[in-house]
Simulated scan of single mutants.
Amino acid sequence: MADRPSVLFVCVKNGGKSQMAAALMRHRADGSVEVHSAGTRPGDAVNGLSAQVVEEVGASMAGEHPKPIDENLLRRVDRVVVLGTEAAVDPVEGMAGSIEVWTTDEPSTRGIEGVERMRLVRDDITDRVDALIDELSRHTAPVVRVYEPALCCNTGVCGPDLDDELVRFTADLDHLRSRGADLQRHNLANDPTAFTTNTAVADFLRIAGSAGLPLTTVDGVTAVTGRYPSREELVRFAGVTSSTALPTGVTDLGLTSSAPTGGCSPDAGTGCC
């Protein structure tokens, strides 16, 4: 389950709302989400009423205790959720995810206290947790990024001669994107920021130089260097499967096996893109 999305819930003391959210997320997500909680100023113990009301719906805070924010955890999780407006979490350099604030229901402003108050807080947090689970489940496809050298254009049909490998790669990429794959390509000529802001890519470029490109990463891990990934590799990296039999003469991605003809050649009057 190493590819599970991850969430860090934060409140001030990490004894009440953030612990409730974490317990409810563990219960509702049933292991599909990596769950953590922490406090900006951790208290001494978990709130007893909070533990009681989550147990009423089958969740549990057993074995949990207030703890401070781990900066390494803050940097790597996919989502940081701050419960309430009293706690504040500042982003750190290299964060993989985003920070959001849940302004949760506060029944005490309506004169509701005790266990009834806590049940209403629990129900509000439960609705928010369910919505977050739905959101995260839609964004669990592998993240594939291809970092290319400086190209006149990246279609493979820019110039007098076709670049068959680039034509094939472009077609495969477009097809997989149409099937929901999270695939992006970055050209050193027109998107240098993508290279400089990614530490792993910047280090690769510093050591190997542009001659080492293309570089393909999957969820931030280097997968292929010095060439474009093959069709089979792209399918595997993107986590896309097909159960539909394809007609004769069509590849396993639904693409014709023959390369397109023509290009933006000088003879065509278009020159280089």
Rank of each mutant, 00 (worst) to 15 (best):
N14P: 04
V146Q: 02
C272F: 04
R177Q: 12
M118F: 11
A200M: 13
V235W: 01
Y147M: 00
P107R: 12
V82S: 08
L246D: 01
I99H: 14
V250K: 08
E165F: 03
R227Y: 05
E93V: 15
I207Q: 14
F169A: 03
Q52T: 15
A200E: 15
P229K: 12
M20V: 13
T199S: 15
V54E: 10
T256H: 05
A259F: 03
Q52E: 15
V46A: 06
G39R: 04
S230T: 15
I99Y: 11
M118V: 06
H175T: 03
S230H: 06
H139N: 13
M118H: 11
A268P: 00
A238C: 13
D70H: 08
F204K: 04
I133G: 08
A22V: 06
C272L: 14
G269D: 05
D172K: 08
E148T: 07
C264R: 10
R26F: 08
V12R: 14
D127G: 08
A96E: 14
S50W: 01
T104R: 06
N190S: 10
C264Y: 05
A22W: 02
C153R: 05
V121L: 04
D163F: 00
H186I: 04
G254M: 05
G239Q: 09
D172V: 03
M1F: 03
G269T: 09
V240S: 00
C264D: 05
A259N: 08
A96C: 11
G15S: 09
E34L: 01
L205R: 07
T196S: 09
G58S: 07
R179P: 06
R168I: 09
R177F: 08
M25I: 04
E64H: 11
V7E: 07
G239C: 06
L205S: 12
V92F: 12
A223F: 03
E148V: 10
R206E: 14
D130W: 02
V12E: 12
H175N: 09
A88V: 14
A259P: 11
V80Y: 09
V92N: 14
P214L: 11
T241K: 04
L176Y: 10
D3Q: 08
F195A: 09
P5V: 13
L166H: 01
S60E: 13
A223E: 12
C152E: 15
S108H: 15
L215M: 00
M20G: 13
H27C: 11
T197F: 00
Q19W: 03
A194C: 01
D164Y: 02
R28A: 14
G39D: 07
T140I: 06
D219L: 00
G114A: 04
V54Y: 01
V10K: 10
G180P: 05
F169C: 02
P5L: 06
E106I: 09
I69Y: 08
V89L: 10
M95T: 14
R128T: 00
Q184R: 14
L205E: 12
A189N: 10
G48W: 02
E148Q: 13
G111M: 11
P229Y: 03
D191T: 15
S137G: 12
L49F: 09
T126A: 15
A131L: 03
G269P: 07
G111R: 12
R179G: 01
T244D: 07
A171D: 00
D123Q: 12
D127A: 14
A141V: 05
S50K: 02
A268C: 08
A51V: 02
Y228L: 15
G94L: 06
D78Q: 05
R122Y: 01
V12S: 13
V143T: 05
T241L: 02
A202D: 14
T109V: 14
G15N: 09
